[in-house]
Design a protein around this nucleic acid. Structure first.
Length: 275
DNA sequence: AACCATCTCAACCGCACCATG
DNA sequence: TCATGGTGCGGTTGAGATGGT
């Protein structure tokens, strides 16, 4: 597919007009990818506009930059967002909001674009299913008290099942294996270099009490340690004695596999109680 | 098989900021 | 100080993929 489109701009000179008319937009071809990869391998990254010209690419510098950073870079991680990464995204988004590039700095190999897409497609979808705004207190409470502890639970379960985490070792676009790479230390943006992920367990009446059942604080020192160490003790979700009520899931989204299998029947019940 | 709805994600756009002359 | 060009970021779009009927 050669979706060649011209920019509709006011020509300022015949040369510029010709140059602008030659610019390509839309999906990149394999040939263009190879040209860009080879040029950067030889000359390195530089000024993107001049790079685009010198490489002979009929693309804007912006387009080249985006293609390289989001797709062609050898250290771009591919594959599903892992529970660990989901947890980090939720935590960091709660702290910084839509600062995608800043969040991406804490997820090596993940691009701001990918995280942004994840948020918009997955997280906002869950908010929609709960019939609340993604920025509402309700949804934030669900995230903090259900979703994030659930992720911690899943991470711990996965880690207890095998000594080596399966969370890392994704392949990149080129099909190569990206070296296992736990989250790297943040370059001195946090004052202490220590980030805390704090989860209090849900306030429910599951066991006849409305008080917080317990609380865990996870010390994420530099994000660099194995998750087995990050999650040192049971979170104490308080579901142990939980009896699942009879629920009719017909005609609701809750009986379906939500792709990531994020919400369980217990979640549904708890959310219904709290919202 | 065909059609439609929904989802995913690569790519683009507009804007703000910064460096340079 | 101002104009210009380059870069980065967040928001948005739309083509292709996928699933349901």
């Amino acid at each position: 597919m050669e979706a060649v489109m011209n920019y509709k701009t006011t020509p300022t000179s015949s040369d510029q007009e010709s140059e602008i008319d030659d610019l390509r937009r839309g999906p990149w071809t394999v040939d263009e990818d190879l040209v860009l990869i080879n040029y950067i391998a030889t000359h390195g990254e530089g000024r993107w506009n001049s790079l685009a010209r010198c490489a002979g690419l009929k693309r804007t510098g912006k387009s080249c930059r985006l293609r390289w950073l989001n797709y062609l870079r050898p250290d771009v991680r591919r594959g599903n967002i892992t529970p660990e990464e989901q947890l980090l995204i939720l935590e960091l988004h709660s702290r910084w909001g839509n600062r995608w590039s800043k969040i991406a700095q804490h997820l090596p190999g993940r691009t701001d674009n990918e995280i942004k897409n994840y948020w918009r497609t997955r997280v906002q979808k869950h908010a929609k299913q709960l019939k609340c705004d993604v920025n509402s207190k309700k949804f934030k409470d669900v995230m903090k008290h259900l979703w994030m502890p659930r992720l911690v639970e899943r991470i711990r379960a996965a880690n207890s099942g095998s000594s080596s985490s399966s969370a890392y070792g994704c392949s990149n676009r080129a099909g190569g294996l990206v070296t296992a790479c736990p989250v790297q230390p943040e370059p001195s943006t946090e004052s202490s270099g220590v980030t805390q992920l704090s989860y209090s367990t849900p306030v429910t009446e599951v066991e006849g009490s409305t008080e917080n059942l317990s609380a865990d604080t996870i010390q994420v020192e530099d994000y660099g340690m194995p998750w087995e160490e990050l999650v040192p003790s049971p979170v104490g979700l308080g579901y142990d004695n939980f009896e699942l009520p009879e629920l009719d899931f017909q005609g609701t989204c809750w009986g379906e596999d939500l792709g990531e299998n994020l919400w369980s029947m217990e979640d549904f019940w708890l959310i219904q109680q709290q919202l």
